[in-house]
Amino acid sequence: MATKVAEAREGHSASGWTPAQPLVEVRGLRTWFPVRSGVISRVVGQVRAVDGVDLDIRQGETLGLVGESGCGKSTLGRSILRLVQPTAGEVRFKGQDLLRLGSRAMRRTRREMAIIFQDPFASLDPRQTVADILGEALDIHHLARTGRARKERVSELLGLVGLSTDFAGRYPHEFSGGQRQRIGIARALAVDPSFIVCDEPISALDVSIQAQIINLLEQLQEKFHLTYLFIAHDLSVVKHISDRIAVMYVGKVVEVSAAKDLYRQPKHPYTGSLLSAIPIPDPRLERRRERIILKGDVASPLNPPSGCRFRTRCFKAQPRCAETEPPLDTVNLGDHKAACYYPLS
């Protein structure tokens, strides 16, 4: 076992990865879901949930990923962890392409990454006790040699997420939503990962609990030098926790930038419209707030529009937008990139 871990480590160094490089490099990632119909299940179309995404996630940062429901952000998160099998592209984790790993090597590499889910009621097995839920990761990777070590690690994990160690013998249905989410976080921490995908971890929680969970995630990040991909459909939530933010629209990343810049100076019209929808907690300012109301519906990922996917709803669209798709570095201000020919000034 120890030699296997050592081999895996050497594998990383052999690929030339150093901590100065992005922890996760996503290149040309595509996840298409075939649509089947008829008696012989003929493929009649492809839902392009993720359609050519390039993204870097740097060591120790929180990258916020926002977009409307159905834009593919959850699929992107799960494709990066290979919980959904991508159709094409590369996901380099510490320099190693995850999509090329065999199933055995992939299972071993899973120790270094984890996921936290949106729905705390669906994400815990109703038939397992908290001790079993948290201990499972330890069993899979042989991280606890004795029953006593396992118990101690479970208690430690519960302590880390602010739960009483008395809870170890209880079942998930005995907990509130916030407590369940903490158990989900503890499970993610069990394998001692360096990268965690947070898939809308607070969307299903009461507003009063949301802040607690955000704070907990931030404390844990500091303590264990975690890297987060934080998925949300709400820019105001992501603003608080993210170092950088990527905005997705119908399977594509349309803008990526440092969090501050994105809020101060959005470049893509879609980002501008999302930001204009955030209410200002001051009645006078709120009354004068200018809203960009988009026309039409979100384009279908089954049959996206030619050229720029946002052009059908864009208030700045020109004929050129329908011809060729603007690459992400059309606007390139170093750290701030946007896929738009006619960016906001």
Partner: peptide, 14 residues
């Protein structure tokens, strides 16, 4: 389709 099954896979379960 349940998230707890996806979660178990994400831990590297066979």
């Amino acid at each position: 389709q349940m998230e707890f099954v996806v979660a178990t896979r994400s831990l590297g379960a066979t």
